[in-house]
Design a protein around this nucleic acid. Sequence first.
DNA 1: CGCGATTTGTGCACGTCTTCACAAGCGCCT
DNA 2: AGGCGCTTGTGAAGACGTGCACAAATCGCG
Lengths: 256, 256
Amino acid sequence: MSQHRHPGAPGRAGAVPALPDLPEATVARLPEYLRALHNLADAGHETVSSEGLSAAAGVNSAKLRKDLSHLGSYGTRGVGYDVALLIEQIEYVLGLTQRRAVALVGVGNLGHALAGYDGFASRGFRIAALLDADPSRVGEEINGLVVRHVDELPAVAAEESLAIGVIATPAAAAQKVADQLVAVGVTSILNFAPCVLSVPEGVDVRKVDLAIELQILSFHEHRKASLTALPATGGSALTALPGGLAATDTQEAIGT
Amino acid sequence: MSQHRHPGAPGRAGAVPALPDLPEATVARLPEYLRALHNLADAGHETVSSEGLSAAAGVNSAKLRKDLSHLGSYGTRGVGYDVALLIEQIEYVLGLTQRRAVALVGVGNLGHALAGYDGFASRGFRIAALLDADPSRVGEEINGLVVRHVDELPAVAAEESLAIGVIATPAAAAQKVADQLVAVGVTSILNFAPCVLSVPEGVDVRKVDLAIELQILSFHEHRKASLTALPATGGSALTALPGGLAATDTQEAIGT
DNA sequence: CGCGATTTGTGCACGTCTTCACAAGCGCCT
DNA sequence: AGGCGCTTGTGAAGACGTGCACAAATCGCG
């Protein structure tokens, strides 16, 4: 479509690409599209239809088109999307054109694994520092990086331009670490500790709790089990769908 | 209405408590409430108000009340919620009254950490088996469990009642593992591999991609940077957002 | 050069989630 | 006993996200 000047052609960043403020739901899906696009590119595809890409990303094709339309018009009707161009655009919007430095605090069980996780590096992030509060861990070398004490955070921030911090400490230590991160200018935090962090306005926190995911699955298991588990009795609840729980619900209330 | 006898008082489980089908958004928050409640219980609180609990869980109090109301009426007006009772109820609804066995496939970098993660055990799950396709890893002992070959999955399923599987393999292996899990009767999968899994209907998949979370944060960083970098121009986007640019679920206020 | 096949971009309707605001209910104090 | 303050539970409104269905746009072919 004509001179739809690419809002953020990587080379040119002067005139404020006016990042369209995307719906959160769309933002959360962009990384998924990006991964699928990289796969397609590696497989030699130069273009891809919304149908093809949506299948690779595991979403509905209409949703994908709407998501992409928020970035601007980068598709060609009758043809599809240019894979390389779309990769470029999504990476630009996500701010991945610069490799971002990440500080990882907490080199325990989980932190250790994160330090060695190559998915970070392969997707535009660089672990700039490993930190821990436990003196016995300081000095340990993991994946080519030496663990430093968490109190050295200001020094680390001075060396690198740190914007993102990852907290992989026990819950009890997380808030303090968050405060320290905020103090050195970190404005985005990925929190693996099972607790709520309180941070000043303007700081983003995302939380990943592995056990919560399992609990959600557990609910669905429980639910599935409760549905299939009763052909014997009256069979009421089974045949009755949404409407029919009145019967099971109100059964003799008074008395026992 | 009023005589809501507890749908699933743990002692009494005969007559199918008719699990109310909760909104997904609510289900996703229940584990968070549960964690906060356990903290409160440990701190000696016997009751808690929706205000107090919502602060501890990092959500809006109206939302919390609505969520809990879906479970039934377990609060007392003018007083609040009975902590112990509410814990019992949420655990029941989430299906945590029985300790669920989980099979963990892929004992690489991440899988290793998951195997040692005590957050699973402390929240009602038990890692029943560690599996890997790499023969050189089979036999290794981690956290008291011996790694077995993934092809032994049927044997494992025969020993235990497996409903949940965790995939922590490289993306290339994930689909095959998923198929194997489904084949032995697993109906819920937690997938850490960065890829889309295709599973038959009736099987639930939840995905956790650590790099995606970082990319979402990166977007917000990029956004924040692009906003603060130009007071000059139209200033449209900056002034546009009235109250909050904190679109995510960040929360304030723990207080006390 | 025009036509048909194909695929994007989007208006619209629908469902879900969030938030406000307040009546109903409960306990306590007088 | 009665009133008062506090807190839950919920109706209603609005914001948000989803999916359908189709017009607009493009390419390839005859």
